[in-house]
């Protein structure tokens, strides 16, 4: 039930941790302070380590950065790029918000879909973008994910997906909610055709996306430290009036409770995905 959405400034690195400090310019080279170890890291170093701090903290990453990291060079071909959100309920402020987010993020919607090769293996790939209304799912995201699974089924391709989402997009009301059922049905058809689906949870994965296509993969990987859950931690604290355990809803906690297969640090993701794809 976390439907949190907010805007972030344009710089991709600014999409990092919720408590990330602004980039410091005083040391000559631009730096960013890690919200986990509180040490400054030169931006150049952060870039060369897939936006992972030496302490292991995974900064948030936008969709295009991930595609560059995961897909074999030059192999990504985008699909369904023209599908964008409307404002079906005439929800106040939504049209303006979409325009602003599109301008800031450079993306048309909160998910980028296409085909790619990973370690030489062809697959369908979807990558959600935390910079686009925190990866929330409205009609356009639902339509693109559904269309991708249908395409993958037709072409008999595996699907690899990176999820990041605050949940359903409340500005599209019931139409957003129904995307949970629509995407799940498409995943089921793809699955019943004997095809592989691997999902990678990245921070955060909550609400209606966790409770639909994100959790329905054959193999579930999670980036270390990612928040994975249904209800948001703040809502749970307010409802139960109880302090939450420190590691509550973190990838490690979710692994312990049996809801993901393994942790996949960014530096090992491509290799692990390649091995998994090759095993099928």
């Amino acid at each position: 039930m976390a439907f949190i959405q907010f805007l972030k400034p344009k710089n991709a690195l600014e999409e990092g941790g919720r408590t990330a400090a602004p980039i410091q310019q005083d040391a000559g080279e631009p730096e960013k302070t890690c919200p986990n170890c509180h040490k400054p890291i030169p931006l150049s170093r952060l870039w060369s380590s897939y936006l992972v701090c030496p302490c292991g903290y995974h900064f948030r990453m936008n969709a295009r950065q991930r595609i560059t990291m995961i897909a074999d060079k030059g192999s990504f071909l985008e699909l369904f790029a023209g599908i964008v959100s409307d404002n079906p309920l005439q929800f106040p402020g939504y049209t303006e918000k979409l325009e602003t987010v599109q301008n800031i993020s450079g993306e048309a919607e909160a998910v980028v879909c296409g085909t790619a090769e990973i370690g030489g293996r062809k697959c369908c790939l979807f990558v959600m973008d935390p910079g686009f209304m925190m990866g929330s799912m409205g009609s356009a995201v639902g339509e693109k994910i559904t269309a991708l699974f249908e395409y993958a089924m037709q072409k008999r391709l595996p699907v690899v997906g990176f999820t990041v989402s605050g949940g359903a997009r409340m500005q599209e009301g019931l139409l957003s909610l129904m995307q949970m059922a629509k995407t799940s049905a498409a995943v089921k058809r793809h699955s019943d055709a004997g095809l592989l689906y691997i999902a990678v949870f990245t921070d955060p994965a909550t609400g209606g996306v966790t409770a639909s296509f994100a959790m329905e993969a054959d193999i579930l990987l999670a980036e270390p430290g990612a928040t994975i859950g249904f209800a948001g931690a703040r809502v749970i604290e307010q409802t139960t009036k109880k302090a939450l355990p420190k590691e509550f809803q973190k990838a490690e906690f979710v692994l312990q409770h049996g809801f993901v297969d393994t942790l996949a640090p960014r530096s090992t993701q491509k290799q692990l995905l390649t091995r998994l794809l090759n095993a099928h």
């Binding site: 039930m1 949970m180 059922a181 799940s184 049905a185 995943v187 089921k188 699955s191 909550t206 966790t210 409770a211 639909s212 296509f213 994100a214 959790m215 329905e216 994975i228 859950g229 249904f230 209800a231 809502v235 749970i236 409802t239 139960t240 109880k242 939450l244 355990p245 509550f248 809803q249 409770h257 049996g258 809801f259």
Partner: peptide, 22 residues
């Protein structure tokens, strides 16, 4: 909405129903 529900996979339980009911 609570600790136990999250520990035992509320999101997974809902997702599985959506998939299987389809």
């Amino acid at each position: 909405c609570g600790i136990g529900a999250e520990e035992r996979g509320q999101g997974q339980a809902i997702a599985e129903n959506l998939m299987e009911l389809s």
